[in-house]
Design a protein around this nucleic acid. Structure first.
Length: 213
DNA sequence: ACATTAAGTGATT
DNA sequence: AATCACTTAATGT
């Protein structure tokens, strides 16, 4: 087991009172995930809400034919509000969540969460804020799909990814980009080449470096 | 040396 | 922007 209090304090000190931090530390289930491990799958139910202490998660969405794409990343200090439906209202998950990096989560049981909602103003504020941020994020996802050219989407995707990973050197294949954006490898390769010619990125095998942040 | 996987190219829809 | 068919390059066994 790890220094859970220290980890908690690091991201949530300014958000939560000492008392609430204590409660989280006592009650939440702290889990460590390796990169690529699944938090929840489509159709699953959950009875917890994850607070992200370190690392990042990616939230995926798929259609009935099994085409899957990335919705957005979640970082330390975030929580996954799309799981609120899932755990509070006993709904099945509409998304799949996977760890993008090694990650530490604090899983808060539903009942506890509901009690906190009554007892702690900061907790209400936190959830409302998280909700607000996700709605905005989703709107930009829609903008991307509806109004942007694919090359813009790729570039934004790369910048997002660089942001959550904290590096401009991304270890990624063209196929992986294609999967996340629900496109095909061939067109990704061509558009990456175009972005490179524009001086925005640098392409190496298994790697894309962002130049023009 | 051979197989596998990633990436590049031209043509077509 | 997607798909097909094919080539080339890099990497693992």
């Amino acid at each position: 087991m790890i220094n859970r209090r220290e980890l908690l304090g690091k991201e949530y000190n300014f958000m939560f009172s000492r008392q609430l931090l204590e409660e989280i530390g006592d009650i939440a289930d702290f889990v460590e995930l390796k990169e690529g491990e699944e938090v929840i799958d489509y159709g699953q139910k959950a009875d917890f809400l994850p607070l992200i202490l370190t690392g990042a998660l990616k939230v995926m969405r798929e259609n009935s034919q099994g085409n899957e794409m990335l919705l957005y990343f979640l970082e330390k200090g975030d929580t996954c509000v799309s799981m609120l439906n899932c755990c509070m209202r006993k709904q099945k998950s509409e998304v799949r969540i996977i760890s993008e990096t090694d990650t530490v989560l604090a899983l808060v049981p539903t009942e506890t969460m509901e009690r906190w909602f009554v007892e702690y103003k900061e907790w209400r504020t936190f959830l409302m804020q998280a909700y607000y941020e996700r709605v905005n994020e989703l709107i930009s996802v829609i903008d991307g799909m509806a109004f942007q050219q694919l090359d813009e989407r790729i570039f934004n995707y790369l910048k997002d990814k660089a942001m959550v990973l904290g590096t401009t050197q991304l270890h990624i294949t063209h196929q992986e980009i294609a999967s996340d954006l629900n496109s095909s490898r061939v067109v990704i390769s061509r558009l990456l080449k175009k972005l490179e010619l524009q001086g925005k990125i640098k392409i190496r095998r298994h790697q894309v470096e962002i130049i023009d942040f």
